[in-house]
């Protein structure tokens, strides 16, 4: 069984970026707890040649720049939390977060390309970067629009205690 120690070995061993790797990367910024709006969080730390996050952003809040392998950086001053980049990222490496959007509850909107989709109001199992169950969440919205090209974005509230750790939800069993 893998231990916390294994996790710390990082992206090229476990498949998931460790918090140390994320914190050391200029790309990853967790929105500050006092921020009022949702903001995009990007976990893309390898410098792959890719920039749809930058070109899809309607307000120019994400910068990759002329060198297409630069890491994307979000400007929280400009980011409106609209979520267009979440479905535009081919790597499914972007989600939106906000700390304490309601009493003791944080907010996440993440890309989800599995069926079945959860219904709004459902209780779902939130997972960390290793797919481990962390806590329950409540589905607030399930956004599936044409311009997102079959990538659904699921909006969920979950306890503040797991603000940084939660990144997605468990797949649901087939109907």
């Amino acid at each position: 069984m893998e231990t916390k120690d294994t996790y710390e070995k990082g992206l090229k061993i476990t498949g998931a970026p460790s918090l140390d790797e994320l914190h050391a990367s200029p790309c990853y910024q967790l929105p500050p707890k006092e921020r009022r709006a949702l903001a995009a969080v990007i976990e893309c730390i390898e410098g792959i040649p890719c920039n749809p996050c930058e070109t899809s952003c309607p307000v120019g809040a994400i910068t990759v720049g002329d060198e297409i392998t630069n890491l994307p950086v979000v400007d929280f001053e400009k980011c409106t939390g609209c979520g267009i980049c979440v479905a535009a990222c081919p790597g499914l490496a972007i989600y939106l977060k906000k700390y304490e959007f309601k009493e003791n509850l944080s907010y996440i909107a993440f890309p989800f390309e599995y069926l079945p989709l959860p219904p709004e109001g459902a209780t779902v199992q939130m997972v960390d970067r290793y797919g481990e169950y962390v806590c329950d969440g409540t589905v607030l919205r399930v956004v599936k629009i044409k311009r997102m090209d079959r990538t659904t974005v699921v909006h969920v509230s979950y306890p503040n205690d797991y603000y940084e750790r939660v990144v997605n939800m468990k797949r649901l069993p087939a109907n």
């Binding site: 498949g15 998931a16 893309c44 390898e46 990222c89 499914l92 990144v167």
Partner: peptide, 9 residues
Amino acid sequence: GVHTAKVRR
């Protein structure tokens, strides 16, 4: 890494 991360989670 973005591919491994989505499979891992």
